[in-house]
């Protein structure tokens, strides 16, 4: 085994057009995993800040509780806030919208499925059965990008409605840390959509096939799934747990 490996690597050191590598892996894949490791720290810092500042805001709106525009009253229900002396017109409802966010979470999860199918399409390009449109990479790349864009649409809707309810990035610590954290994630999704659209453009132009293109899509897929995984954590830690 070792013998063969050495012979292969050294017999023709001149003029070989593939570079020798220690592991036989792909440079760009190692780099992407390293980058993902770094991104883990980025999001850990953002999430820690959100959690550290949870419940420290001086004014509403609050993520899970009812509040009052004119005072610091907080309560579990609208009635509780009013009972504590808040005028009905000043009552602020909790801003987090679980039904809407559950939908966007589902969309992002499904986009990951579309992504693996796109990769499968590239890997099996030209094989029997993969020439049908619903098995090919173009369809699934487009679906992934579309679902990513839909997620961004949900986020835009969410952000606008928060602003209408009086929560901006400047309102309180919750607003600052919430918009920054989810905004960072949204930016990652946007970069991912741009990336997927670029891949789709290449696919339309010349077709994605062969080992090099598999790698190209594989790396984008790693990035995309990572963005998905981060959202899994955010959804639980920020939206569901109070």
């Amino acid at each position: 085994m070792a013998t063969a490996a050495i012979a292969e690597s050294s017999a023709a050191p001149h003029g070989e057009h593939t570079h020798y590598t220690t592991t036989g892996l792909e440079n760009r894949k190692i780099a992407m995993w390293t980058l993902i490791g770094s991104e883990c720290m980025i999001f850990a810092s953002l999430i820690s800040t959100y959690l550290v500042y949870k419940g420290r805001s001086k004014v509403g709106p609050w993520p899970h509780d009812w509040g009052c525009k004119t005072s610091a009253i907080v309560g579990k229900t609208a009635a509780a806030v009013q009972a504590a002396g808040c005028a009905a017109a000043d009552v602020m409802k909790p801003v987090l919208d679980i039904p809407i966010t559950s939908q966007s979470t589902f969309v992002l999860l499904m986009s990951s499925l579309a992504m693996v199918l796109a990769l499968e399409g590239v890997e099996n390009h030209g094989k029997p059965g993969y020439d049908r449109w619903y098995k090919g990479s173009r369809f699934w790349l487009a679906m992934t990008a579309l679902m990513g864009a839909a997620f961004l649409g949900y986020q835009a809707y969410e952000f606008t409605s928060f602003v209408h309810e009086g929560l901006t990035i400047r309102t309180n610590l919750f607003g600052s840390s919430f918009f920054t954290l989810t905004g960072f994630h949204g930016t990652h999704v946007a970069v991912g959509v741009l990336w997927l659209v670029s891949l789709l453009a290449i696919d339309m132009k010349r077709g994605l096939k062969g080992a090099t293109d598999v790698l190209l899509v594989d790396i984008a897929a790693l990035y995309w799934h990572f963005v998905d995984v981060v959202w899994i954590a955010i959804f639980t830690l920020i939206y569901l747990i109070q």
């Binding site: 500042y53 420290r56 805001s57 990035i169 400047r170 309180n172 610590l173 607003g175 600052s176």
Partner: peptide, 11 residues
């Protein structure tokens, strides 16, 4: 934003 704004409750 208010990340370091002590008056807003920042640490």
């Amino acid at each position: 934003t208010q990340f370091y704004e002590l008056a807003a409750g920042a640490d």
